[in-house]
Simulated scan of single mutants.
Amino acid sequence: MSARRHIINETNQQAAKIPDNNEEVCDNSSLIEQLIMLRKKYSLLEKEMDCMNKIINLIRDGVVVSNSQGIVLSANLAVEQLTGLHINDLVGKDLKQLADAGVFINEPASFVARRQKALLT
């Protein structure tokens, strides 16, 4: 399990321990300790994601990350150079619409995987 996935799982487990209004409310110091721990873990996750983004930006090929619906979540700097579009102009857009508009020359891997019903890792 990657460090990022481990932190996310741990954070989710800790968040699940925080009582709802209908449950017994823990004392304030315990809640504050839990919030401090969650902030530290979130900070570690942000640092890891920053490192990952730096590595992805070193790749000379264009890398576009999308969700399972084909919506662009992020892209590396090479995509900006290849397409002439700023990353912020791509994020939130549908890959199919971008391909139809001629933004991408080759078919994105997520389209191929979806057509072949394959898991894209």
Rank of each mutant, 00 (worst) to 15 (best):
A3V: 07
A3Y: 11
A3L: 15
A3G: 09
R5G: 04
R5Q: 15
H6K: 15
H6Q: 15
H6M: 14
I7C: 08
I7L: 15
I7R: 14
I8L: 15
I8W: 07
N9T: 12
E10P: 02
T11R: 01
T11G: 04
N12V: 11
Q13P: 07
A16R: 13
K17A: 13
I18D: 04
D20H: 13
D20M: 12
D20R: 14
N21M: 13
N22R: 13
N22Y: 10
E24A: 09
E24N: 13
E24G: 10
D27P: 03
D27A: 12
D27N: 12
N28E: 13
S29P: 02
I32Y: 00
I32P: 03
E33M: 08
Q34R: 04
I36P: 01
I36R: 13
M37K: 13
M37I: 12
L38Q: 11
L38A: 07
L38R: 01
Y42E: 14
S43I: 03
L44F: 02
L45N: 07
L45W: 03
E46W: 03
K47V: 06
K47H: 13
E48R: 04
E48V: 04
C51W: 06
I55D: 00
L58E: 15
L58G: 14
I59G: 02
I59K: 02
R60T: 08
R60W: 03
D61I: 12
D61H: 01
V63A: 01
V64R: 03
V65A: 12
S66M: 09
S66Q: 02
N67M: 04
N67K: 07
S68P: 06
V72G: 01
V72W: 03
L73V: 05
S74R: 05
S74G: 01
S74I: 01
A75G: 02
N76L: 00
N76W: 02
L77K: 14
A78I: 00
V79Y: 02
E80F: 07
E80V: 04
E80I: 01
E80A: 00
Q81F: 07
L82E: 10
T83N: 10
T83W: 07
T83C: 13
T83H: 08
G84E: 10
L85D: 00
I87F: 09
N88R: 11
D89K: 11
L90I: 07
L90M: 01
G92D: 04
G92T: 04
D94A: 09
D94K: 10
D94R: 08
D94F: 04
L95A: 01
L95K: 01
L95V: 04
L95F: 06
Q97T: 01
L98T: 00
L98V: 00
L98G: 02
D100Q: 09
A101T: 02
G102E: 08
V103N: 06
N106Y: 10
N106C: 03
E107F: 05
E107S: 06
E107K: 05
P108L: 11
P108M: 09
S110C: 08
S110P: 00
S110T: 14
F111H: 08
F111W: 07
A113V: 09
R114F: 08
R114W: 10
R114N: 10
R115K: 15
Q116F: 08
Q116W: 00
Q116C: 08
Q116T: 00
L119D: 11
L119I: 13
L119Y: 12
L120C: 12
L120H: 12
L120S: 10
T121F: 05
T121D: 00
